[in-house]
């Protein structure tokens, strides 16, 4: 049961990765990275339960935190600046 969930999470991580590679616009990549991070949090929590070591939850918590901060950082530095060009590429 846990393993099935882990497989589902892994597959969706793969799909998010494909989206991150494909782009096409900058925001799609950010979205995919954000999604990837959430999946990683879930994956680590589940792995912790699978191997019977709930210590891993600390790492999951860190990931949730880091994920949020990096999305905010990306937006903070690139929100109103020179992103026009890459949007027109799409």
């Amino acid at each position: 049961m846990i393993s099935a969930t882990i497989v589902a999470v892994l597959v969706s991580m793969l799909l998010a990765l494909v989206r991150a590679f494909m782009g096409p616009s900058f925001y799609d990549r950010v979205l995919a990275v954000n999604m990837f991070g959430t999946k990683t949090v879930l994956l680590i929590a589940l792995l912790g339960f699978l191997s019977g070591r709930p210590d891993f939850l600390d790492i999951a918590l860190i990931y949730a935190l880091i994920n949020f901060i990096s999305v905010i950082a990306i937006l903070r530095y690139f929100e109103y600046s020179n992103r026009k060009s890459s949007i027109q590429e799409t």
Partner: peptide, 28 residues
């Protein structure tokens, strides 16, 4: 951003190999 994903992935490997502290550092 792809490097970000890369380090997320490698931390995943560390978790799988039971190196909790390394994964922690890599995450942060």
């Amino acid at each position: 951003m792809l490097t970000g994903i890369y380090s997320l992935l490698s931390a995943g490997f560390f978790v799988v190999m039971d190196a909790v502290d390394v994964a922690f550092t890599e995450a942060a």
